[in-house]
Computed example of a mutant assay.
Amino acid sequence: MFDLRELERAHEIVGQAVPPTPAHAWPLLADRMGTRVIVKHENHTPIGAFKVRGGLVYLERLKRERPNTPGIISATRGNHGQSLAFAASRHGVPAVIYVPRGNSVEKNRAMRAFGADLVEHGEDFQAAAEEAQRRAQFDGLHMVPSFHPDLVLGVATYALELLRAAPDLDVLYVPIGQGSGICGCIMARDLLGAKTEIVGVQSTEAPSYALSFAAGMVVTTETSNTLADGMATRVPVAEALAVIRKGASRIVQVTDDEVAAAVRAYWTDTHNLAEGAGAAPLAAALQEKNKLAGKRVGLILSGGNIDFDLFRKWVGTDAAAPGERAMA
């Protein structure tokens, strides 16, 4: 998709709006995992998620190559839309964002606050995306897909930062929604010549990439009913799947209960807020804890945009089991 020079240039573009995010080794997480753990804090960006990087790189090229673009349109469950709204506002480009009905109220508010014209349509992401595509053709707007080489190039800049700060990571756990994050990690690792094993993470309630990875072909699912909305994907992107199958070792599936436990662990051990997809890598690492003794583990905390009601449900005093509270 790109070379190291292009990745370095993308990092410069992202850096005009997003300072490098921290990568911390938290001792309480190390105690919990029984090994050294490095967390890449993409919850510390201007939109609270890694996606902002892709939007900035995508809009920079679009504005440079097609300066008269009348506006952009896309579909999202939240972070992709915030990214595009944030980047579009910096370039003076109108943004229309479609979300499914019942989408996160707080993510919807954030997208509007960043300047997006928000439209609710359909029962899930796929329905919203299909309607956004029809609207793009009807109104002559530029349709921004959920997966694109420029989006991957942009989000790969967080992996560039992490792997240069911690080049000796043995294994890196990355959540999978539409696939840009894990593809960016794979590309950055390969361009830097690192040996880090990359493991994808999906929800048991939305396992389309995990099923596709195992089958060697795109496999869709009928539903994606996970509370970790950043992983709620029914239809994998073929280009992303090809990169993942070539560059990832496996995909681990985690339940919503395991994700909730990981959200609590991040809160108690680091006092960082993690959304469902952001906590999923920790959930997967905890599931595979017995395999990780003596290894240096990287976790992508991809975002912190969790609705308060869900946070209260998952982190409230009565949420954790007695044994889990004792461990924490």
Rank of each mutant, 00 (worst) to 15 (best):
G179L: 03
A159D: 08
A136F: 08
P145Q: 13
L192C: 10
C185S: 13
A136R: 03
C185K: 05
D139E: 15
E161P: 02
V119N: 06
V199K: 05
L160S: 02
I186P: 00
L151P: 10
A127K: 11
G184W: 05
Q126K: 14
G179W: 08
T196W: 01
V199L: 00
P167D: 09
L153E: 01
S203Y: 07
R112N: 04
D150A: 14
L169R: 15
M111I: 04
M143Y: 14
V174D: 01
D168K: 15
R135E: 14
C185I: 03
A194I: 02
G193K: 15
A132R: 05
L163D: 08
H142E: 15
P149H: 09
L192G: 05
E197P: 03
T196N: 04
A129Q: 08
D168H: 15
R112E: 10
K195T: 04
I182A: 06
D117F: 11
G193C: 08
T196I: 02
G115M: 15
H142S: 14
D190N: 13
D150H: 13
F125P: 08
E197N: 11
L169P: 07
D168A: 15
F138S: 15
L153F: 08
L162Y: 12
S203V: 02
G122Y: 00
Q137E: 10
L141K: 11
A127F: 07
G193R: 15
R134K: 14
V174E: 00
V152W: 02
A129F: 06
L118M: 05
Q126M: 13
R164T: 14
F125I: 14
A166M: 10
D124C: 12
A165P: 05
G193F: 03
L192I: 07
D170C: 06
R189C: 00
G200L: 09
E130V: 06
Q126T: 12
L153I: 10
G177E: 04
E197H: 06
L141F: 03
C185F: 13
G200I: 07
L163P: 05
Q133D: 06
G122K: 01
D117T: 09
L191Y: 04
A156T: 07
D150L: 15
L151A: 10
L153N: 01
L169V: 10
M143G: 00
D124H: 10
M143L: 07
C183H: 05
C183K: 03
L172N: 12
H142M: 11
T157M: 13
Q126I: 12
L163K: 12
E130M: 12
H142P: 03
M143F: 12
Q133R: 09
G115T: 11
M143R: 05
V171I: 14
D190A: 00
A128D: 04
A113W: 05
G179T: 05
E130D: 11
G193H: 08
M187E: 09
F125A: 11
I176H: 07
I176D: 01
